[in-house]
Design a protein around this nucleic acid. Structure first.
Lengths: 226, 226
DNA sequence: TCTTCCTAACCTAGCGATTGCTTGGTAGCG
DNA sequence: CGCTACCAAGCAATCGCTAGGTTAGGAAGA
């Protein structure tokens, strides 16, 4: 079973410098797509093998387990994302510009790696308590802190509206932006930067018309009727 | 003649008027919670049985299959939701007020039946092509039409900003609002109507401060500073 | 009131299929 | 000759589900 493991990982990693890396990455990409579309538990190792053109048992020459494949996919994705965001928040620009960049970077990521994003959304919840996947929650928290930091800074500078809870505002933006991976199609009619533009317009200025020509235009009258 | 089974379903349904209904509903609620938290495929009939205090095989006295349990949960939820929204959009109020009501109704639903909402979000994608679950996509589409209708009406009346794609706006709101079920806790510090207030403020007027010493100042004054 | 009988609700036991994974081999290339 | 990448075959566990039996309680008939 899983008794003692004398570092097989090191040997496998060093051995995968040749063409092995290419094949390995290829299989991993196939697995990522299957995991993302069907879900991790619903994807069998036989599915992955079929798609890769090999038998399911042969997968275990490249990977320790099905779970290890998931971990590798998620780790690559999340560390990449963290680095991307860290670069943005470190910029010497006003918070408003940095938040825009975070949003645009998110849509670009959704465009570039939709499978990894969908996979994260589908499985991160179930992976919350699993020790091998602690990095998921950990990096998520780091990213949240970056975003919330920008939002708070924006409120202090006067860029952003006060009276909004920063954490709640973060969740609002995060959920609206990242859930778009569920319907966004990289080769569809809507380009990712167009979606970003529309979302940023809505996020910046809101849904209500600001011409305020008609009767109940102010922010006071009709909204809280009841 | 015991060879032919004369409509066992009808008999079962009619017979479940007594305490049977209570037990049935109880098991269904247990299943909904398990499906929502672990996911449908990851939940075994033995899990449900354990939680209900019976053996897994005994579940099949109440339900035809595990899938049938899911279908019943989702159908009850979605038809209820459709009715709720239909009532709102039929109101004789300005689009702006109706949209607010749709949003508040959504948060109220999340508060009242978080398991069903989470379940829908987790499984609706995988159920897209399954014949027995066609009603899921169908009702989803009907609901989408209601929301988009209100948004378009709001743009025509002048309530809502033009230059926003209605479908895209709908998805933005929908994803931001409904994904909150992932982190909202019915007994947590944030009440659902408080979240609704914050989200509506953000949705109405946007994130940018409207005092705006600099450029664009849309609606009028102040008033909401902490 | 007593007896009979029916039925909803559950149990016992297990079947066939599918799951992730293992073991021992082999083809082919440098 | 050695090593990478695969195949062939199958094992133990788990899955949804089934068939037939048991029990308790209430309605019905005398």
């Amino acid at each position: 079973m899983s008794a003692i493991r004398p570092e097989p990982r090191t040997r496998r990693r060093t051995a995968s410098d040749g063409t092995g890396t290419a094949r390995r990455a290829e299989i991993l990409a196939i697995a990522a797509e299957l995991f993302a579309t069907r879900g991790f538990p619903q994807t069998t190792v036989r599915d992955i093998g079929d798609e890769a053109g090999i038998l399911s048992g042969s997968l275990y020459h490249h990977f320790d387990s099905k779970e290890a494949m998931l971990a590798e996919i998620l780790r690559d994705f999340m560390e990449n994302l963290r680095a991307r965001f860290a670069e943005v928040v470190a910029q010497d620009r006003p918070p408003r510009a940095r938040l825009d960049e975070l949003v645009r970077g998110s849509f670009a990521t959704i465009h570039q790696q939709p499978h990894a994003v969908a996979l994260y959304q589908k499985e991160s919840g179930a992976l919350a308590g699993v020790p091998e996947f602690r990095f998921v929650g950990q990096i998520s928290l780091e990213i949240e802190k970056m975003w919330v930091g920008v939002i708070v800074a924006g409120q202090q500078v006067g860029d952003f509206r006060t009276g909004l809870d920063p954490e709640l505002t973060y969740r609002f933006i995060r959920d609206a932006v990242w859930t778009s991976v569920q319907w966004y199609r990289p080769r569809g009619r809507l380009r990712h930067d167009v979606v970003a533009d529309q979302y940023l317009l809505l996020l910046h200025s809101g849904l209500l018309a600001d011409d305020a020509g008609s009767a109940d235009a102010g922010s006071t009258s009709s909204a809280n009727g009841r």
